[in-house]
Structures are given as C-alpha cells and as structure tokens.
C-alpha cells in the first residue's frame, strides 16, 4: 500500500513523515520518530504502557494508526522534561518512588498529566480511576498514587506562584 505524507507536531516541533497506513502510532513513535520512551506492552489496548497525549488527550498509541495523526499535536514522555528539566510530575514520581522497572512509567505520566490538567486537586479515588487503565506489575500502585498526589500539589503551588504579582 502506498505511503501517506503526514505533518504533525511532536513534542512542540513540526515534523513531516511518510507512513504506511497500517503502521501503528506506537511503532511510528518508536521507530520513525526514534523516540523510545513510548513502550509497547500488549498491543491490544489493555496495559496502557504506550499511552501518549494526542491533542492533549491520553490515548493508546497501539490502537491508532500513525496516518491518523496528520495535523495533530503529539506529546510523548520525551516532551515532558529532560535530565535537568524534569516536569513536576516526573519529579514527584522520582521523589515518591513511583517507578521500579519503569516500563509502565511513560504511560502513567500521560495518564497523570491528563488527570491533573482537568482535576488539579484529585481525590484518591479519582487518581485510582485515572490510572486504572495502566497496568503496573512492580509497584502495587501505592507509590504511584502518592506521586500523583504530590505532583498535584507541586502543580498547584506552581500555578499560585505564577499568578502572584511580581
């Protein structure tokens, strides 16, 4: 099948690509965009490891085709923050020991990011609901939940700081 030209924004940068229609978004991200932070755990839409943000919305990248991303804004874990510029959610996962093997972590970050954008001060039940579609085999989830609660606090404080008069 012929390849299709697409244009999209990847972690804030405009990118162009030629993709075969059947290429899954997860494979496109990992192989064509060479962004290995998005992990493939099940390829049937259950584990959530491959979650990324498409136009700010968390989606399973194993259940979309790259060709569907034409014109979209894609955020992967690489778009959260780098070594010296960790995003507050990444920082919170680090501080609270919200990861062990780290394989599910990028998907967890995407889920947490979406939750906290909509619900700045989530209850524990809301946090559980937000990450219930992300399987983690290492942590038993407790420190992930604590990390998201801590991240919420960090983000709220950051917001207060930025709205205060200088």
């Amino acid at each position: 099948m012929d390849k299709v030209a697409i244009e999209l924004t990847v972690n804030g940068r405009a990118r162009q690509a030629l993709v075969a229609p059947r290429v899954l978004l997860s494979d496109f991200i990992r192989q064509q965009l060479a962004l290995p932070g998005t992990h493939v755990g099940c390829e049937h839409g259950v584990c959530g490891s491959c979650n990324v943000l498409v136009n700010g919305v968390a989606v399973r990248s194993c259940l979309m085709f790259a060709v569907q991303l034409d014109g979209a804004e894609l955020t992967t874990v690489e778009g959260f923050g780098g070594a010296d510029t960790l995003h507050p959610i990444q920082e919170a996962f680090w501080e609270e020991h919200g990861l062990q093997c780290g394989f599910c972590t990028p998907g967890m970050l995407a889920a947490a990011s979406e939750l906290l954008a909509q619900t700045p001060d989530p209850t524990e039940a809301e946090i559980r609901e937000a990450i219930a579609g992300n399987l983690c085999r290492c942590t038993g989830y407790q420190y992930i939940i604590e990390a998201i609660r801590s991240a919420a606090r960090k983000l709220r404080e950051a917001r207060v700081e930025t709205t205060e008069p200088v």
């Binding site: 959530g48 968390a58 989606v59 399973r60 995407a110 979406e114 939750l115 579609g133």
Partner: peptide
Amino acid sequence: IAHAAVRNR
C-alpha cells in the same frame, strides 16, 4: 466501561 484512555477515543 473500560478506562480513561479507551473512553477518550
């Protein structure tokens, strides 16, 4: 019904 990321799409 399902989970957030599935309901999103």
